[in-house]
């Protein structure tokens, strides 16, 4: 029994290979992009909109609101990254209702890739917002003693992101696979439903944690800017 879809090698040429994880990811990318294109290539700006457009608008404005609630005041700059994290993980989980489907998020390679993306995105957004010095200053605040702890924190939370998502998704798939061998009727359906719920929760957790990390890296400078602007405004 394969623990992850990484072990399903479909094609290999030396170092290059095509495994089940990559193929499933491509299919999900294709489905998401095609669906988005089909819905948005005829968007209406009138008072009446199609149901699909209304659903998309609800999802996107919902994501926007969540990002704003985390503390990122300009959510349109981050929705590309955070929204895609959520939609990808959520779609990967929703597709578990397809028989024989193994979610790419059940592969530690994928979750590690996503965690690495977050690991890179946090300093990326932090540098864009605060500059190099301001961002690096965050590591030695409030005191330089915190520097090793901050570095450990960066690494450990990346690892935690990857392992948490992998563990949840893989365990769900594993449990269903095991239950299918023990009680092939009814119970796996209940577990699949529970897996859908777990998947949605994990998608939310993953994306909201990414947003929180990014916010932590970008808001420090804004707080300083605000504290400087206040006495100026008083004068």
């Amino acid at each position: 029994m394969n623990l992850t879809s990484d072990q399903q090698i479909l094609w290999q040429y030396g170092f290059l290979k095509l495994d089940g994880t990559i193929l499933t990811t491509w299919l999900l990318m294709l489905g998401l992009s095609l669906g988005a294109f089909l819905i948005t290539h005829r968007l209406s700006t009138d008072s009446t909109v199609s149901r699909w457009q209304a659903a998309l608008e609800i999802i996107i404005t919902g994501i926007n609101e969540q990002i704003k609630e985390v503390g990122l005041t300009d959510p349109q700059r981050y929705i590309g990254f955070i929204g895609t994290l959520f939609l990808f993980v959520a779609t990967a989980s929703l597709c578990t209702i397809i028989p024989g489907y193994m979610p790419p998020t059940g592969s530690l390679s994928t979750t590690a890739a996503l965690a690495i993306c977050v690991f890179i995105a946090v300093p990326w957004f932090g540098l864009r917002e605060q500059g190099l010095r301001g961002y690096l200053k965050g590591y030695i605040s409030p005191t330089p003693i915190m520097l090793p702890f901050n570095i450990i924190s960066e690494l450990s939370r990346t690892l935690a992101l990857a392992v948490r998502l992998f563990g949840n998704m893989m365990s769900g798939t594993m449990i269903i696979a095991i239950l299918l061998t023990i009680t092939p009727l009814l119970f796996p359906i209940v577990m699949t439903a529970l897996g859908l719920l777990t998947g949605m929760v994990q998608a939310y957790i993953f994306s909201i944690l990414a947003a929180v990390y990014i916010a932590a890296a970008t808001v420090t400078r804004r707080k300083k800017a605000d504290s400087q602007a206040t006495p100026l405004a008083a004068h």
Binding site: F81, A112, C117
Partner: peptide, 26 residues
């Protein structure tokens, strides 16, 4: 459990997906 080629491929895939969804959705 980690296949580093797959990790790299998934990073690229994710970045492509970010661009695609930005372009066609957000």
């Amino acid at each position: 459990l980690i296949d580093w080629f797959t990790v790299g491929a998934q990073v690229v895939n994710f970045l492509i997906l970010v661009w695609l969804l930005k372009r066609f959705l957000y």
